[in-house]
């Protein structure tokens, strides 16, 4: 292949990988901020959100340039389209980390009820999200569609934890009326993590589309 085209494609992949690491770090810190109710960590996430946004714009622009200048076809076209969509998904995940940080920053609560935390399984939810992020990053690096699809079933676990969190928080709010504002804000954290799972599912589908030219979207074939 023409070397400079290969160089452009590799550079694009490297940028998306860097964006990925940045978003992964934001989500890891969001976990720490929530579990320790650490407003300092939350502040760091809020500040770094601008970097995520800037990175998204840079990748968008580079993809546009590549399409305009090199008119890619076949696997190259699928690659740049996948990078464009993955970039957008990563930016949304970055937004969710930012939203979670805002909750920690704004909440009046000083500590969590340990029993409630255990029952809500918020740590598990963060673990699953971070595992999915790491495994998909590796799947893209290795161009491994099997690895990409293997994370799809984990999204169901996120859905289940999110679903049960609503009733647990509702019950807790009834028993502790003073905690109603906290419970409402905390429910948002679960929704954001659940939505993160949806975006990670999209990313897995984009990786498979790029490598195997298979469309998994809207097929219900999570095991394909």
């Amino acid at each position: 292949m023409v070397k400079f085209v290969e160089t452009e494609l590799n550079e694009l992949k490297r940028e998306v990988d860097q964006m990925w690491s940045l978003v992964n770090s934001q989500m890891e810190q969001a976990r720490d901020a929530v579990i320790n109710l650490d407003k300092n960590v939350a502040q760091q996430i809020i500040v770094r959100e601008r970097r995520v946004d800037a990175f998204e714009l840079k990748i968008d622009s580079d993809v546009e340039d590549f399409i305009a200048l090199f008119t890619p076809v076949a696997v190259d076209l699928r690659f740049v389209l996948a990078m464009l969509k993955i970039n957008s998904d990563l930016e949304r995940i970055g937004d969710y980390a930012h939203g979670i940080a805002r909750f920690v920053n704004d909440t009046g609560a000083a500590t969590f009820d340990a029993g409630l935390m255990e029952e809500l399984r918020v740590k598990d939810m963060f673990s699953i999200v971070l595992d999915m992020l790491a495994e998909l990053q590796e799947a893209l690096r290795d161009e491994d569609p099997v690895k990409a699809t293997s994370v799809l079933s984990k999204d169901d676990q996120l859905d289940q934890i999110n679903k049960s969190s609503a009733s647990i928080l509702s019950r807790y709010a009834k028993e502790n009326p003073d905690a109603i504002p906290f419970c409402l804000g905390f429910a948002g954290v679960f929704r954001k993590l659940e939505r993160t799972g949806d975006h990670l599912t999209n990313i897995a589908e984009e990786i498979v589309f790029y490598i195997d030219a298979k469309v998994l979207k809207h097929t219900g074939l999570k095991d394909a």
Binding site: M1, V2, P72, V73, A74, V75, R78, A213
Partner: peptide, 18 residues
């Protein structure tokens, strides 16, 4: 042919990897 050719040689040719 231009989105998902079935033969590797075709893909290599149209993407300039020949």
């Amino acid at each position: 042919i231009f989105t998902n050719p079935h033969k590797e040689a075709t893909q290599n040719y149209i993407t300039g990897r020949f």
